[in-house]
Amino acid sequence: MTFADGSWHQIFSFENYGELLVLVRNSLVAGAALGLIGGLAGVFVIMRDLPFAVHGISELSFAGASAALLLGTNIVVGSIVGSLLAAAVIALLGTRARDRNSAIGILMPFGLGLGVLFLALYKGRAANKFGLLTGQIVAVDDPQTAWLLGTSAVVLAALVVMWRPLTFAGADPDVAAARGVPVRGLSFAFMIVLGLAVALSVQVVGALLVLALVVTPAAAASRVTASPVLLPLLSVVFAVASIEGGILLALGSSIPISPYVTTISFGIYVVCRVAGAYRARRWGSRTTAPQPA
């Protein structure tokens, strides 16, 4: 069997697609909510230089979800608990970038090791184990959807309340502190909100590739605009397009969702990076061109 007539159909196959589409109704709803949350949180992740923290939180989220799977309890709750613990530790130990990265470097292998241990002890379906790492699109049932939407609403409300002071503190923390903004408390609160956002994202895209949903869309948007309005808007659009497109493409294949989400997200970033570079060169050539006398 050649790649053309065999493996290609594992990647893209749309036989009985209409019937399969019903199976991912919950995932599409959850994906839209996660795209909104991931896109908005990602703006501050980029602004505050926290991509590494996202990865560290996802490892503890994976450990919490694995523990819940082993104990037969709610996986979403386990994932959230693991994320919140990681976010709190990073926020408390990492006041400076160097300290924060050291704490994350310690947490990541610890969380991953715990997760692997719990999965090794779990005797259930292998698909459940694999899904925690790489994501799955048909395992989001009604209770999980309710948890995801409810927690997404909490995260969205928190981001709305913190948006202006977070933007101020991210742009100039010293001036913000002088103006009475509780920078340290705000930073801790945002890490907790980020922990919730990461925990929600892990449920669909998996622990290993959560960066594609929380970091890449905002990074792509920042390449084409610095507008305080367009930046979060484009970040959300890119995140929703990545996850919804990934779900719809993965539905017609036997491949996990994560390669589709990451490929779409990376493709958007490449396009935005090229467009941003072209605009910068064109703008620069115009400003440096000699002016007529």
Rank of each mutant, 00 (worst) to 15 (best):
T2G: 13
A4I: 15
F14E: 05
L21Y: 04
L21C: 08
V22E: 09
R25D: 03
N26Y: 04
A30K: 09
G31V: 03
I37C: 15
L40C: 11
A41F: 01
V45I: 14
R48G: 00
A53G: 11
I57S: 15
L60F: 14
S61E: 04
S61T: 13
F62W: 09
G64S: 05
S66D: 00
S66I: 02
A67E: 04
L71Q: 01
N74K: 03
V76L: 01
V77Q: 09
V77A: 15
G78Q: 03
G78A: 04
S79D: 05
I80W: 02
V81T: 10
V81D: 00
G82Q: 03
S83E: 04
L84V: 09
L85S: 02
V89M: 14
I90A: 09
I90E: 01
L93K: 10
L93E: 03
T95Y: 08
R96G: 13
R96L: 01
R98A: 12
I104T: 13
P109C: 06
P109E: 12
F110W: 07
G113A: 15
G113N: 08
G115C: 02
L117D: 06
F118E: 03
L119K: 09
A120C: 03
A120P: 01
G124L: 08
R125W: 02
R125H: 08
R125E: 15
A126T: 07
A127T: 14
A127G: 00
K129F: 08
F130G: 02
F130D: 14
F130H: 10
T134Y: 05
G135I: 01
Q136K: 12
I137K: 00
T145S: 10
W147A: 04
L148C: 06
T151P: 13
A153I: 12
A157Y: 11
A158R: 13
A158G: 13
V160P: 08
W163I: 01
R164D: 09
L166Y: 06
T167Y: 07
D172E: 07
D172P: 08
P173C: 00
D174N: 10
D174R: 14
A177S: 13
A178L: 12
R179D: 14
R184G: 06
L186C: 07
L186M: 12
F188K: 11
M191G: 09
L194G: 06
G195I: 15
G195T: 09
G195N: 06
L196E: 01
A199Q: 10
S201H: 01
L208M: 14
L209A: 06
V210S: 11
V210L: 12
V210P: 11
V210C: 13
V214A: 02
A219I: 05
A219Y: 00
A220I: 00
R223T: 01
R223N: 09
V224Q: 05
V229A: 11
L231F: 13
L231P: 00
L231V: 10
L233R: 12
V236L: 02
A241G: 02
A250E: 09
G252L: 04
S254E: 14
S254M: 10
S254L: 12
P256A: 14
P259M: 15
Y260D: 07
V261H: 09
T262C: 06
S265D: 07
F266R: 07
F266T: 15
I268W: 06
Y269K: 02
Y269I: 03
V270M: 12
V271Q: 01
Y278V: 10
Y278L: 11
Y278G: 04
R279S: 07
A280N: 08
W283C: 04
G284R: 15
T287K: 06
P290R: 13
